[in-house]
């Protein structure tokens, strides 16, 4: 295990940022700490880097106890959301900073800086100041700077959070490829489930200062441990006594011969890009909130789903489903956030 955080707790005044959190991060993997803002994931990352001290618990990096080491002795690369570029130094001097501190020879430093600038495609900007770079370029510079000292682990705190959507997507793919090239143990914090699902080898879901679930992206998506994880990793909707993914729901417009279908009426049908989203009110008095169903346009077309049409819904065998607790059954589900914006 490359990083071991054991029983870490941290409070800021009355606010509990981390409550007895234990996480093991394997060597050479790209791990995402995923969770909503204020859930404690950034705090955990900063405690691993030594930028914040835990109230209790321990941190081991590559087998060494780093709990009481200051950040400069942990040999950890850290990338900040807002780049933390050294504004008075050129791009090359920014990247060289850690090497200069380590008294690396001039020739070796220059060679290594050039290598890294090639890696992040900034060679032609070596003599520019950070203020002359775009946000994406600045973040790549920050990444090269962190990698220059050959850290044991690379930590990224919402690295793409300050960038616009298109650049964020590009950098995300680029980070994935970079990690395949240089397999340094990497942990990045994000609140974007798509980013985590797309880039990470493993995901640690953190919410309200606690770890909700750890696993591979597909394991988390297909076998969520609880309603929170299910709702946070993707859209979820209630069907009868279960929480299911809206795209898993099987919808038909003729009375089905088999059992197990819930009858209902289409309350709303909307096309969003390549998909069709339908809200269905069930006849059953068990559930007053509409069921959200999504499907492709090709699937929707033959069904003729207009407002008021009669439909039947079913959860197919093998689909991801989570039984709802008794309390949760009547309350609007908070985890259904991603889909709730088109609720009537």
């Amino acid at each position: 295990m490359s990083i071991e955080a054991r029983n870490v707790s941290k409070r800021f005044g009355d606010f509990v940022a981390l409550d007895d959190v234990s996480v093991s991060i394997p060597t050479g993997r790209l791990t995402a700490l995923l969770g909503p803002s204020g859930g404690g994931k950034s705090t955990l990352l900063r405690i691993i880097a030594g930028l914040e001290t835990a109230d209790s618990g321990s941190v081991h990096i590559a087998g060494d106890d780093a709990t009481s080491l200051p950040p400069q002795r942990r040999n950890v690369g850290f990338v900040f959301q807002h780049y933390a570029a050294f504004k008075h130094l050129s791009v090359a001097r920014n990247v060289a900073f850690g090497l200069e501190i380590r008294k690396t020879s001039k020739e070796e430093t220059a060679e290594r800086v050039n290598e890294l600038l090639d890696l992040v495609h900034l060679r032609q900007f070596a003599d520019r100041l950070p203020s002359q770079l775009s946000g994406g370029q600045r973040q790549r510079m920050a990444l090269a700077r962190a990698l220059a000292v050959q850290p044991r682990v690379l930590l990224l705190d919402e690295p793409f959070g300050a960038l616009d959507a298109k650049v964020r997507k590009e950098l995300r793919d680029w980070l994935r490829r970079l990690h395949d090239e240089i397999p340094v143990t990497t942990v990045f914090v994000t609140h974007d489930q798509e980013e985590a699902l797309e880039v990470a080898d493993d995901i640690v879901v953190i919410n309200e200062g606690r770890v909700e679930q750890i696993g591979s992206p597909s394991a988390l998506y297909d076998q969520p441990a609880n309603e929170f994880v299910m709702g946070f990793l993707g859209p979820a909707t209630r069907l009868g006594s279960e929480l299911v993914r809206p795209h898993d729901i099987h919808i038909v417009s003729d009375l089905p011969p088999e059992e197990g279908f819930y009858p209902g009426v289409v309350a709303r049908a909307a096309r969003v890009g390549y998909e069709v989203r339908v809200d269905v009110i069930l006849d059953d008095s068990l559930q007053s909130s509409p069921v959200h169903v999504t499907m492709s346009r090709a699937e929707a077309h033959p069904l003729k789903l207009d407002v008021g049409s009669r439909v039947w819904l079913r959860k197919p065998a093998g689909a991801t489903a989570l039984p709802l607790g008794v309390d949760a059954a009547n309350a609007p589900h908070p985890g259904a956030g991603p889909i709730a914006h088109y609720t009537i």
Binding site: G50, L51, V76, A84, G98, A142
Partner: peptide
């Protein structure tokens, strides 16, 4: 910036 410098040693 200061924290970044610290993390770089």
């Amino acid at each position: 910036e200061e924290l970044a410098a610290a993390s770089l040693g």
